[in-house]
Nucleic acid binder design. Structure first.
Lengths: 255, 255
DNA sequence: GGTTGACCCTCACGTGACGTCAGGCCACAC
DNA sequence: GTGTGGCCTGACGTCACGTGAGGGTCAACC
């Protein structure tokens, strides 16, 4: 029963070394080993491998793939839906590139030359500090952003692990309240929102309730942020925003 | 005049380090330096960078990108057409993946489970030894293929460089004859075909004229091979096939 | 029942495409 | 003239494997 490394490698179209690597880093460890130490992959392992290869091809790092796959409460259907969505987006992006190429062909035949900005327009989506720029515009003056950049620059790997852990706990807390039907303006939800604000203040920048409110809005408006919540539960981003708003109202009333 | 590394990095959406790296490996060296040693990128450098990023995003290694960009006689329009084609294919592939995901979703909701082969079907295109399997089927018995595998296993980097060089020379020879309007059954073209057959025999496996004929057919029929010729000149794959056939006929007559 | 050949194992170093400091010029602003 | 930000060249780190080396395992065939 089960498949050997060679067999799995063959029909997955990867090398044996790749499977060894995934085993080494704990991304995909075969369910069993024979007494001789041979790896034996079960049906479930193949499922996991298929997903790994899928997300990998869409450009996720193996670490990211691991967190996606080990996300609690994500069944097969969750993944399929997400994969569908990711593919749709990627196709959209490529179609934009097609349009850009066609535009360039036209410009070429007309003898028009493009400005540097125009030339790289289509790559703009991938600008890594896009977040930064937006933060600057939205939160005014770039003060918060600068602070965040300075602070985070000094963080160690352990710090980041703690941040990830805390963030995950907050996400779970939001999700649980949401799934349990707790209203966003109930004390429980507001408390989680407050913990979230403290989390931001503690690790990134001094986050006032007003700034937090803006942040909450962005979680819904900006798909890059929304996806983090929506992939846990549909509607969670809006729920988080509402909780954050309710919390901001409460604290204003307190004052 | 010209742009600094920082400026170029900014609107191309890459890091300064990346530009340094491209300079180091000779992929993109700025047209000029200031007397202080600062890099100054000209308009043409931006063009090149844009192409580099394009091909890179489609999965080419930097070495491959270099050979594509330094291909002699490839103007802006050649690149645009090729980019268009590559994008179209990539979109096609992603659409297949979408279909596969949708099929999986259906199977999931129906409670059907897929076989391992079905699971990885969509990744099949990337199976690296796909060529091998086909070779085995087409040339019968896998003898040629086995020989090729055994021989090439022992080749050094220098050997591969020579092979690439020889192959490039043959490609150029074919292209020149083609562009010059030399008929495929003219002596000049047949001679190149014969050199091509010897090249195969020398480096990969004993290639009879009959096998060579089959190989020529495949260069046209199989897009994975055809692309190597078509990207140099449209119609070149068919030309090569015809020359190979003519050469095979000639040598049969000789005998 | 021994040997052959395909397949498996674990080190362990190599590679491609950068990321990330360190240490030190350069240039313009105040 | 002294910051402050941008640029330079090393040089080492990282990620996702590739590529042997050296050695067990196992079904098959003689």
């Amino acid at each position: 029963m089960g498949y050997s490394v060679g067999q799995v490698a063959a029909f997955a179209g990867v090398t044996v070394r790749t499977l060894h690597h995934y085993d080494e880093i704990g991304l995909l460890s075969p369910g069993e080993r024979t007494r001789a130490g041979y790896r034996r992959y079960a049906e479930a392992d193949l499922d996991r491998l298929q997903r790994i290869l899928f997300y990998r091809e869409l450009g996720f790092s193996l670490e990211e793939v691991a967190t996606i796959l080990d996300e609690p409460g994500a069944g097969p259907m969750t993944h399929l839906r997400r994969q569908h969505e990711l593919l749709r987006r990627r196709i959209g992006r490529l179609q934009e590139m097609v349009a850009a190429v066609e535009k360039a062909m036209e410009a070429q035949t007309m003898g028009i030359s493009l400005t540097p900005q125009e030339r790289f327009e289509v790559f703009g989506d991938f600008d890594p500090d896009e977040h930064a720029q937006e933060a600057e515009e939205r939160w005014g003056g770039g003060d918060a952003f600068e602070q965040s950049r300075r602070r985070t620059a000094a963080y160690t790997k352990d710090d980041w692990l703690r941040i990830k852990e805390e963030g995950g706990a907050l996400l779970t807390a939001f999700a649980e309240a949401f799934e349990a039907g707790v209203p966003a303006d109930a004390e429980q939800a507001m408390d989680v929102a407050e913990r979230h604000r403290e989390h931001i203040s503690r690790w990134f920048y001094d986050c006032s309730t007003t700034m937090h409110r803006g942040l909450g809005d962005m979680y819904v408006a900006d798909p890059r942020f929304a996806v983090n919540y929506e992939r846990v539960a549909v509607g969670l981003a809006a729920y988080v925003r509402d909780a954050v708003h309710a919390n901001a109202d409460r604290r204003r009333d307190d004052a």
